[in-house]
Design a protein around this nucleic acid. Structure first.
Lengths: 178, 178
DNA sequence: CAGTTATTTCAGTAACAACAGAAATTACTG
DNA sequence: CAGTAATTTCTGTTGTTACTGAAATAACTG
């Protein structure tokens, strides 16, 4: 397998985009490469195809594994680890959302809740500021609760809902269908 | 207005979280500060409260304005610009999503579509790779289409839908209610 | 229109994250 | 258990972005 100009373009754009979302460029590039590749690849191949140091691949692979985005497959008679992406585009998205939620939203919620606790015996912070914090806490809680419910739905249901688009609004009780 | 320990904690955490999402720390901190503050603030105040250079505040303010997250308010008899956040938590979220979509998702879609065009007279890229690109294009298109529809719904409808959580799935045609 | 205040731009510095290459570790093999 | 292959860890370097402080510009005032 070698990188055609088409693939290069895809991989480079993906890497570029990753950086904007706080993801290391090499990590995104490897993910893009593995997404495109029909077969699993070993670290050596990735290293030479993307022209990055072997050690850099090692670190990035670990990062992708911690996100549960890739999996190892072993070939009989080959000691090296081979990697490929897990799931289809839809599952990829859900995995990324789940990861970011756990790593970034949950700590925010923890922080917000602790702020609410501290508020009680805090008499220097203006009431209006406390209100803003409370509002943010409620908002993030609601979002988290919504996500918890929706992420439990089967994939097929989610896809159906998405294809319905704005039509879901028609089912709001007490709302006229048009 | 001075920063109480509670506020400091909130602002620092927010700034920290911003960096993880590819947002400049100072930018996030200023947004957090303005969110908490009951009154609009001028750049000088922000600069001294957060202990960052005046010029840094100027740059960050521009960034927040380009995201449409803050607005200017002027006080009679005061030449300085005063800033405050726009909208409530919910509107903030929608604004941020809209901004990221426009800046980051739309270019991806453009790239993917161009890749699809190039595919036609590209005989070196394996068919399986082309398939993967096509699949990604369809996926991103569907998501974008869904977003376009949902973002048009009135805020109240969106909130109702969110509060319904997984219940919306009950209304899928051909599905038994339980 | 000189003087003052507010804001922005710019250039250099500092801080940080990404990375390469070497060294060390681990896992295998005959 | 020596030797080899694969992987990881570590250290120093590079490249990038954030930031400061100074200078320039713009906006207002008496």
């Amino acid at each position: 397998m070698n990188i055609t100009p088409l693939m290069e373009r895809y991989i480079l754009h993906w890497g570029e985009m990753g950086t904007r979302w706080g993801v290391n460029r090499t990590v995104s590039q490897i993910h893009a490469l593995l997404y495109l590749s029909p077969e699993a690849m070993n670290a050596e191949q990735i290293s030479s195809l993307l022209s990055v140091a072997r050690s850099n691949v090692s670190t990035s692979i670990k990062e992708l594994q911690s996100w549960d985005l890739i999996e190892v497959s072993n070939v009989l008679g080959d000691r090296r680890d081979h990697f490929k992406v897990k799931g289809d585009t839809w599952e990829m998205l859900l995995t990324i959302i789940e990861g970011r939620k756990r790593r970034e939203i949950d700590p925010i919620l923890t922080m917000l809740r602790q702020c609410e606790l501290e508020m009680h015996n805090d008499h220097e912070t203006p009431e209006s500021v406390k209100d803003q914090i409370r509002q943010m806490t409620n908002f993030v809680s609601t979002l988290t609760e919504w996500y918890a419910q929706v992420s439990e739905l089967p994939k097929g249901t989610l896809i159906t809902l998405m294809n319905m688009g704005a039509k879901v609004a028609k089912f709001i009780p007490g709302k006229k269908k048009d």
